[in-house]
């Protein structure tokens, strides 16, 4: 049965007005189902032709066809590699005067020169954001995850002077706290680890079992030899001494007497740190093949130094 057509105009087309493809299905009540051989819509057809013309023009102007040895270069001889080289050269020319000063002046000289410090800070901030912030947090405020030092405070593991910061960034740091529990490869029993934990709590004046802590004190400078890295008073390798001798600042053993903790300062975390040990790695960013150029490192050193905890000496 023929339904009422919606489009009156189409209905006006009588069979025979438009040629058909000759295909025919069905013949329901004298209405054969036939396929009109309508031309393609003009807007579509001309767009199609235009794309073909566009392709040919493109072949002529731009690199296109692979050949046995190389490829067609095109009249414009366009190359992204060349464009990159030009852009880099232009950027270099702009930065040249300031970058030369950044290279020539020492870190201390830059820190005293307001203009240069501004330049180093803006450049260092960009470098920091991409490379350092994933661990140390945006602006150096630290991360929720433990084990990544906060850079805005004045508590340092390897030193907060310009030179020490530059060294940390350039060559990286490897912090190793060995495991002390027997089952984890150390030489202490569970009770001894507990005693040490109590003593470490006492170092930062917190509630502790004083009898146990007293036993821990002996272990600290005895069997466990914690003092050989953390110092005789537990103030860490930067501030403390062993038998009057200063410690190597490259050890990076934290100060245990303050309230700032790298891996966490609750009883359980301290116990785990002593029992299983900790390792922290700051990747090296400088050197040959390093990710950052010496200039980048200089800029980011100054940036980190000014974050809040930079030390003069």
């Amino acid at each position: 049965m023929a339904t009422q057509p919606r489009d009156q105009k189409k209905q006006d087309q009588q069979p025979g007005d438009v040629s058909t493809t000759g295909h025919q299905w069905d013949n329901d009540e004298g209405y054969p189902l036939q396929e009109y051989n309508n031309p393609l819509p003009k807007w579509w057809l001309y767009t199609f032709y235009a794309t073909i013309v566009y392709a040919i023009v493109y072949w002529v102007l731009y690199p296109a066809w692979p050949l046995a040895n190389g490829f067609t270069k095109g009249l414009l001889a366009s190359s992204m590699y060349q464009e990159l080289a030009q852009e880099e050269a232009a950027a270099k020319a702009t930065r040249q005067p300031l970058e030369k000063q950044l290279a020539d002046l020492s870190l201390e000289e830059i820190a005293r020169n307001n203009n240069m410090l501004q330049f180093a800070m803006s450049s260092g901030k960009a470098v920091f954001g991409d490379n350092c912030a994933p661990c140390h947090g945006t602006g150096g405020v630290g991360a929720q995850a433990k084990g990544f030092p906060i850079l805005v405070d004045d508590d340092w593991l390897y030193g907060g002077t310009l030179a020490a910061i530059q060294e940390s960034i350039t060559n990286g740091r490897n912090g190793q706290m060995p495991a002390h529990l027997q089952t984890a490869g150390g030489n202490l029993s569970v009770e001894q680890v507990n005693d040490l934990t109590q003593f470490v709590l006492s170092l930062s004046q917190r509630a502790n079992d004083s009898v146990s802590a007293q036993r821990g004190r002996l272990l600290f400078s005895g069997e466990a030899s914690c003092h050989s890295c953390h110092g005789d008073h537990g103030k860490g390798s930067l501030l403390d001494t062993v038998g009057g001798q200063p410690l190597d600042h490259g050890i990076g053993a934290p100060n245990l007497t303050d309230k700032i903790w790298l891996h966490g300062g609750d009883v359980e975390t301290i116990r785990t740190s002593i029992a299983k040990g900790r390792s922290g790695q700051m990747p090296a960013w400088g050197g040959p093949g390093g990710r950052l150029s010496p200039l980048d490192i200089k800029a980011v050193t100054l940036y980190v130094h000014t974050l809040g905890g930079g030390q003069k000496k």
């Binding site: 994933p134 661990c135 990747p283 990710r291």
Partner: peptide, 8 residues
């Protein structure tokens, strides 16, 4: 590669 530590 090498940008972050394995701990990270």
């Amino acid at each position: 590669g090498g940008k972050y530590s394995s701990l990270w």
